[in-house]
Design a protein around this nucleic acid. Structure first.
Length: 516
RNA sequence: GCGGCAAUAGCUCAGUUGGCAGAGCAUCAGUUUCCCAAACUGAAGGUCGCGGGUUCGAUUCCCGUUUGCCGCUCCA
């Protein structure tokens, strides 16, 4: 059972996640759906608790940050303004020998450019021959070689244009084959089919197909915040600097989606857009870098597991960007992104909507489009980080092994298991009384099946931090034992104190205070 | 997307040179023990991922396909 290397470890974590009701492949009875997963009974709780911790840390702990919940469907123009439509509409083709991928339109344009170069050469030759008397337009419209090449170019362009307009990718490939375009690296013409990779999923709104208009499932939640900037600023009487936070599903049609729930086609983001005065972005960028790292560190995992990764190549919307990376079993990977987005988004939404998205700054007595610093974390990735960091295969003193999830108690799916030592002599009744007392505050679990050791191990496996056991002495002294998941040590306490003790042990407040 | 490997019970896997489908653990019902996966009795759980082909007969051989993992590629 013990994992000898990180690949085994990762496989064991995946098995464990399924066996104990954290993660299931989507629609598994139909063989699943590639890169889509469901959260099971324990996974849903853990995910909810992570989301709550983020929400409280961002919204509840910051007077100048408020939360919204925007719709997944948005007006199609949103994605033109954001740049998502244009950035991802390229027809791509792979060379099977060199395994290199090219944009089909670039291959064809390069080929056209070569023909143009030939024409240019002819023209320059002629210019040298005729000297000052040279009439380029006349030469181009009469020279047979130039005309022939120009016709070729026109024919290619016309054919390519109509193929693209008809969305006929077969034809695009045929053009590449007919033009005998070779891969610059392998030199072969062994091309795959041409494929259109659009990052966004589309669907139709409207009941009649002719009236239907195409809309997209949002590829990021951020735009829901930008389009509501004025609504929130005005109705919330927000003053810059202020933030808008949101959690929710986003969808990306990834070409390659892999590594369990690390890269899924449907995933949940937790994003916060912080609106600031232009010129102050670098201060706020480093403020949020440190603040977010503190949040990650507050979970108590080794600091060596997290690191910053500064982006050298910046996206079209950013003037500074970094990732917080986590060391997953398959290496350091992005967990959260912090981006200085300038006024790119609000500015573009102004252009496309024609609405003024500005803030009147009373101190400066002037309007401006605010700059934005964004923090964007993948909830599913955070879930995987916590799951893989918590998972431990332990060898105990007596030589037996146990699997334990050392999830921080306030994030654990089940906070407390309550069990009678045996299921007779009135012990179950007593345990039920305690269960009925605690269930109003915490998700608790009652169990009387199997011997007590087995029940403890089952709770270890799902990360339940505490087990309360009712034994024969309980009936006389009204005391129970509280067993700690990590140390396996037991403490005997009065039943009247149990609620108070448990409240303290699983309280999210301690974690939030560590953020200060 | 390309290449490699894999898919048999909830989990980990064995197996049949092509001839009635197996183990351990887990699950459920009971007996017993009672503080760290104990024991016993019984039960349930499978079109051997799916679809074709070859064959008297395919879980086994062949082809396709789906899903997963790994490498490359991609990830504004």
């Amino acid at each position: 059972m013990a994992s000898t290397n990180s690949e085994d470890l990762f496989k064991n974590i995946i098995s464990h996640a399924k066996e104990y009701g954290f993660i299931f492949p989507s629609s598994e009875i139909y063989d699943g759906l590639s890169a889509v997963y469901d959260y099971g009974q324990n996974g849903a709780e853990l995910k909810k608790n992570i989301r709550e911790f983020w929400w409280k840390a961002m919204v509840q702990m910051n007077e100048n940050i408020v939360g919204i919940d925007a719709a997944i469907f948005m007006h199609p123009t949103t994605w033109k303004a954001s740049g998502h439509v244009d950035a991802f509409n390229d027809p791509l083709v792979d060379n099977k020998d060199s395994k290199k991928r090219y944009r089909a339109d670039v291959l064809i344009e390069d080929h056209v450019a070569k023909i143009e170069a030939k024409i240019f050469k002819e023209v320059e030759k002629a210019r040298g021959r005729f000297g000052d008397a040279f009439n380029e337009d006349q030469f181009r419209s009469t020279n047979p070689r130039v005309l022939e090449n120009q016709q070729k170019i026109d024919a290619i362009n016309a054919r390519f244009k109509s193929a693209l307009e008809a969305n006929n990718l077969e034809e695009v490939r045929q053009i590449i084959l007919d033009l005998e375009i070779v891969c610059p690296i392998s030199g072969t013409r062994n091309w795959t089919d041409v494929r259109q990779f659009n990052l966004m999923f589309s669907t139709q709104v409207g009941s009649v197909s002719e009236e239907a208009s195409t809309i997209y499932l949002r590829p990021e939640t951020a735009q829901g915040i930008f389009v509501n900037f004025l609504n929130v600023q005005k109705t919330g009487r927000m003053k810059i600097p202020f933030g808008i936070a949101q959690t929710g599903k986003a969808f990306r049609n990834e070409i390659v989606a892999r590594q369990f729930i690390f890269r899924m086609r449907e995933f949940e983001q937790m994003e916060m857009q912080f609106f600031i005065k232009p010129g102050t972005e670098m201060e706020w960028y480093s403020y949020w870098k440190e603040t977010r790292m503190k949040w990650h560190r507050s979970l108590g995992f080794p600091e060596s597991k997290q690191r910053f990764h500064d982006h050298l190549k910046l996206a079209h919307y950013a003037n500074a960007a970094c990732d917080i990376e986590f060391e997953f079993p398959f290496g350091f990977k992005e967990l959260e992104g912090i981006h200085s987005r300038t006024d790119f988004d609000l500015g573009n939404h102004e252009k496309f909507s024609g609405k003024k998205l500005q803030y009147f700054d009373p101190e400066l007595n002037q309007n401006y489009v605010p700059y934005v610093v964004e923090t964007s974390i993948g909830l599913d990735r955070m879930f995987l980080a916590i799951l893989s960091q918590s998972y431990a295969e332990e060898k105990l003193e007596d030589g037996t092994e146990r699997v334990v999830l050392r999830i921080p108690p306030f994030l654990a799916p089940i906070k407390c298991a309550i069990m009678p030592l045996v299921k007779k002599d009135g012990l179950p009744e007593k345990a039920r009384e305690i269960m009925d007392q605690l269930k109003y505050d915490h998700l608790c679990f009652y169990e009387e099946k199997d011997n007590i050791g087995k029940r403890y191990r089952r709770q270890d496996a799902i990360g339940t931090p505490f087990c309360i056991t009712v034994d024969h002495d309980t009936l006389n002294d009204n005391k129970v034992t509280i067993r700690d998941r990590d140390t396996m040590a037991q403490e005997r306490v009065s039943i009247s104190e149990v609620a108070k003790i448990l409240n303290e042990k699983v309280d999210i407040r301690a974690a939030l205070k560590r953020l200060n």
